[in-house]
């Protein structure tokens, strides 16, 4: 059960971290509901700030790094038990 739960947890976590459509359609970031993907879209297209948009995504990438390390580690542990 545990590996399955972890795999689903990580997949859904990543899906939610990059959520865009719901925020964009419902509030477009009003009332402190902005998310990284929406901010990125606004910087890139509305404000035409490709550099700032890229910087925002680098933040997202940094947030993902711990998950990435964890993912590789648990994969290696799994392979060792195989």
């Amino acid at each position: 059960m545990r590996p399955t739960l972890l795999a689903v947890f990580i997949t859904v976590l990543i899906l939610v971290l990059k959520v865009f459509d719901i925020i964009y359609v419902m509030t477009n970031g009003r009332d402190n509901s902005d998310v990284i993907a929406n901010l990125f879209f606004r910087k890139l297209f509305v404000e035409q700030q490709a550099g700032q948009a890229s910087a925002i995504v680098v933040v997202l990438l940094l947030m993902v790094v711990p998950i990435l390390i964890f993912q590789v580690r648990s994969y290696k542990a799994q392979e060792a038990n195989r």
């Binding site: 990059k18 890139l44 590789v72 290696k76």
Partner: peptide, 20 residues
Amino acid sequence: FIAIVAVMVVPIQVAFQPML
């Protein structure tokens, strides 16, 4: 394969600006 396991968790947003 470890590289594939690693990039699995990278969100697609990272590719947008360079790919555009």
